[in-house]
Simulated scan of single mutants.
Amino acid sequence: MHPLWCALQSLKSSTPMSPSCWFLAFAWVWWLPLVLVAAEEQQAEGCSAKCGNLTISHPFWLTDWDTGRLCGSPGPPEFELTCYNSTYPLLPSSVPNNAGFAIMDVSYKERGLRVVDLRKLQLLHDPPSIFNDCLPIWNTSAKLGRQFKISPVNLELILYNCTEKAAAAARREKELVQAKTMRCMNTSNTFVRAGVPYDRTGNYSGYALEDCDPIVLPVLRLPSGKTNASHYERLIQSGFLLKWE
Rank of each mutant, 00 (worst) to 15 (best):
V219F: 00
L209N: 02
G72S: 03
S94K: 08
L241R: 06
L217T: 14
C83P: 02
D64L: 15
T140M: 07
D66F: 12
I137L: 15
C6S: 08
T187W: 11
Q147T: 09
L241T: 09
P218Y: 00
A169T: 12
P89Q: 06
P77F: 04
E175H: 10
S230N: 10
P136N: 05
L121E: 09
A166D: 02
E41I: 10
N186F: 11
F23W: 15
A166Q: 05
L176N: 01
L135R: 15
G225Y: 06
L159G: 04
Q147W: 07
G72W: 04
A179T: 05
A170K: 01
F23P: 01
R171P: 00
E245R: 10
Q122R: 06
R172N: 11
Y84Q: 06
V216N: 03
P128D: 07
N132R: 14
S20Y: 10
P3A: 15
R119L: 14
Y204V: 04
Q237I: 07
T163M: 02
A169I: 08
P128Y: 11
A102V: 01
R69F: 13
C6H: 13
L90C: 01
E245F: 08
F60L: 05
D133S: 14
P3G: 15
L155I: 10
E80R: 15
P96I: 03
F23I: 15
G225M: 06
S14Y: 12
E45K: 14
W61L: 05
P136M: 08
L121D: 02
I150V: 12
Y207N: 08
